[in-house]
């Protein structure tokens, strides 16, 4: 019996020693030990996970520590971030983080006051609106004109965020160009990409929100196929798509993609300027994380992007590299948010 207690004691002591040893090795850095990156998506097959694991891998090599991505979903990620201020838990998410708040969805708070906004790392330029190949609407201008003429257009979206912002902008544009007709653009609230596609196949939606990545192959199906779709509009900025690899995605080249962005497809934001939306991925930190830790991560990421290797990996997976250090990113995202607030308020 006594022996057994000794064994246990020795074991615990050894474990503690091993840990202490590991911890002291990374003594100099403001963030000690392993880093966990929580993301705002529950899917390990989606763009947030993919982008975050590219960044995590690069960070792990640079900082010489373990960096792990956990797909916990938005509300759990915010909670995890609130709990740990040491910098051992970080978050990567995209524009949903403030759009959810602007749309008044539960579980979202103002990220600019509740957390520290960190550097941006990449853009997913794929946010798109599509119609069946047989649809009379051949461009987003046709949709706007159609609503203006009194045609009811049903758009399948996932409410309360990235998927809705393009819809809101479209509604706003109709209101500006054909006042009083914006009610003809109707949202069909649904969930996943599968559900949106299904609504199109069922004829329960005329236009759907989708992405270049998920819908490119559908756009190449022969017109007689019930599943065939065509792109109407990409919300990305022209300068974003210009940075993509020339071969684009699948068989759709960069030149073809450029046909679908502003100014070729124009959705006005205020009568002068076109609305654009790039889905940007950025870090979020705990409010109380030290400035040293913020600088430490800024510096590491600056070096990673200066080396230029990560950009190739990102582009290969159809992400557009987009590194902005914390302070620059904060100001940039803040003004981006304010623009979208105007649109959302205008159509309320």
């Amino acid at each position: 019996m006594k022996q057994a207690w000794k064994v246990l004691g020795v074991f615990l002591a050894v474990t503690a020693l091993v840990w202490a040893n590991n911890a002291s090795a990374a003594d100099k850095s403001p963030i000690k030990g392993n880093i966990r990156i929580v993301i705002g998506s529950k899917s390990t097959g989606g763009d947030t996970y993919q982008n975050s694991s590219i960044v995590a891998q690069a960070l792990a090599e640079k900082l010489g520590t373990n960096v792990k991505v956990d797909a916990v979903g938005a509300s759990a990620a915010f909670k995890a971030l609130e709990k740990v201020s040491s910098g051992n838990t970080l978050m990567i998410f995209h524009d949903q983080s403030y759009l959810g708040y602007l749309y008044g969805r539960k579980g979202y708070e103002d990220i600019f006051t509740e957390y520290t906004v960190g550097p941006t790392v990449a853009i997913n330029p794929g946010n798109a609106y599509l119609a069946p190949k047989s649809s009379p609407y051949n461009s987003i201008a046709d949709v706007i004109a159609g609503c203006g003429k009194g045609e009811k257009v049903r758009v399948a979206i996932q409410p309360g965020g990235v998927s809705e912002i393009g819809f809101s902008a479209l509604k706003n544009a109709i209101k500006l160009t054909h006042p009083g007709k914006e009610g003809n653009l109707v949202a069909v609230n649904t969930g996943s990409q599968a559900d949106k596609n299904q609504l199109l196949f069922d004829g329960q939606a005329d236009v759907i929100n989708g992405s270049v990545q998920a819908n490119e192959q559908y756009s190449r199906l022969p017109a007689e196929d019930q599943k065939a779709m065509k792109f109407l509009w990409l919300t990305a900025r022209q300068e974003t798509i210009t940075q993509a690899n020339e071969q684009g995605m699948g068989e759709t080249t960069r030149a073809m993609l450029l046909e679908f962005v502003s100014p070729n497809q124009s959705v006005t934001q205020d009568g002068k300027k076109d609305f654009t939306f790039d889905k940007e991925f950025f870090f979020l930190y705990n409010k109380d994380m030290s400035q040293e830790a913020v600088d430490y991560l800024d510096k590491a990421l600056t070096e990673i992007f200066a080396e230029g290797k990560i950009q190739e990996t990102q582009k290969k997976s159809f992400f557009i590299p987009n590194f902005k250090p914390s302070t620059e990113a904060q100001a940039y995202l803040m003004s981006k948010k304010d623009q979208y607030r105007v649109i959302i308020d205008a159509i309320k």
């Binding site: 030990g33 392993n34 792990k68 740990v84 040491s86 051992n88 838990t89």
Partner: peptide, 11 residues
């Protein structure tokens, strides 16, 4: 929480 992201709490 004392040993962040190491799983030592569990062990």
């Amino acid at each position: 929480v004392l040993f962040p992201n190491t799983g030592l709490g569990f062990l």
